[in-house]
């Protein structure tokens, strides 16, 4: 049986208490919500906190208040929100595509947004990683995906994050220095190790979704199986309609970089015109160019790159079809 290491487990009831506990624990402390990302990682010794501070007992984080969603809302709850209208369904739809029904009953919105970057040189047991002298992301010096690279290429594997970036959600963080609002697009770094701009002692409290006002979004996920699997490519497409024309558009790729990668040129290719086949092809091509999947997930990387074009096209076609 693969077991957890020893640690102290704390269950604060308020944000203040949680922040104080984290301050006490220092770098040895980590926050946990659903545990579906952290505990497997702890079993494989990716993270080795001495103190684990659960956020699940904090009422504020479980709140659903209009378009503000607390980060400890489970993915199951998020995916079945009756208040979400069509434009928000991309959020619910992406949540519903995460892993399995069982995991979604435990995993939270915040957990998925802060999901540790993944790599099949990294998401392995300690013993396995020892065989290759570890990697840069944990215990080692080299990135096996790109051995001459100075950075880690672990992949952003969240399904919900690309949607949040695409629709322009804002994240509310609370830390020892107070509160701040961060646009989703600025919450992530393209670095497999430092992939969040969130400080370790900050808590992601809730997510503010833009009110529906003529925008629409979809999320398409590529993976081997219909459940369990992380995205090897995610495409979040957002359009602010202006009558029959595209006002603004954003295309965000998941699973191909260490962050949800917005391809500005793809969005730009759509703006100001109806969503024609030509415009869609231009956007798909624009998204294809910078999509640079690495050999660290399931599937062949060149195929994943080719699929960028197909998946962007299909996402946009879906948006067009239902407009």
């Amino acid at each position: 049986m693969l077991r957890l290491p020893t640690f102290r487990y704390l269950q604060p009831r308020s944000l203040r208490e949680a922040l104080a506990m984290k301050a006490d624990a220092g770098p040895d402390g980590m926050f946990v919500a659903g545990g579906t990302d952290l505990y497997p990682n702890m079993k494989r010794r990716h993270q080795e906190p001495r103190v684990v501070i659960s956020l699940m007992g904090i009422e504020e984080l479980r709140r659903l208040d209009g378009w503000n969603v607390g980060t400890c809302v489970t993915l199951s709850a998020l995916s079945s929100l009756p208040t979400f209208q069509r434009s928000q369904s991309a959020v619910a739809g992406a949540a519903q595509l995460v892993s399995t029904p069982l995991l979604r009953n435990m995993g939270t919105l915040g957990g998925n947004l802060c999901l540790d970057t993944r790599c099949n040189y990294y998401n392995q047991s300690y013993e396995w990683r020892k065989s290759i002298d570890f990697c840069m992301k944990k215990d080692g010096a080299i990135c096996w995906v790109a051995p001459s690279s100075p950075r880690c290429w672990a992949v952003s594997s969240s399904d919900v994050a690309p949607v949040m970036v695409a629709i322009g959600a804002e994240y509310r963080l609370v830390g020892p220095q107070g509160e701040r609002l961060v646009p989703a697009g600025r919450f992530y770094h393209n670095d497999g190790i430092n992939y969040l701009t969130k400080q370790p002692d900050e808590i992601l409290v809730d997510v503010r979704l833009p009110a529906p006002n003529g925008w629409d979004a979809v999320y398409h996920k590529l993976r081997r199986r219909g459940s369990f699997d992380f995205p090897v490519l995610g495409v979040a497409a957002w359009i602010q309609w202006n009558g029959k024309k595209v006002g603004e558009a954003r295309i965000v790729l998941g699973g191909v970089a260490s962050y949800p990668q917005e391809v500005a040129a793809a969005g730009a290719a759509l703006e100001g015109a109806p969503l024609s086949d030509e415009a869609i092809a231009a956007a798909a091509d624009a998204a294809y160019q910078p999509s640079k999947p690495m050999d660290n997930t399931d599937f062949d990387l060149s195929w994943r790159k080719q699929m960028t074009r197909v998946y962007v096209k299909r996402a946009l076609e879906e948006l067009r079809a239902r407009h």
Binding site: N120, N123, R224, R225, G226, S227, F228, D229, D298
Partner: peptide, 9 residues
């Protein structure tokens, strides 16, 4: 997770 055994789907 990575050795792909078919699911119900």
């Amino acid at each position: 997770l990575e050795y792909k055994s078919p699911t119900t789907l």
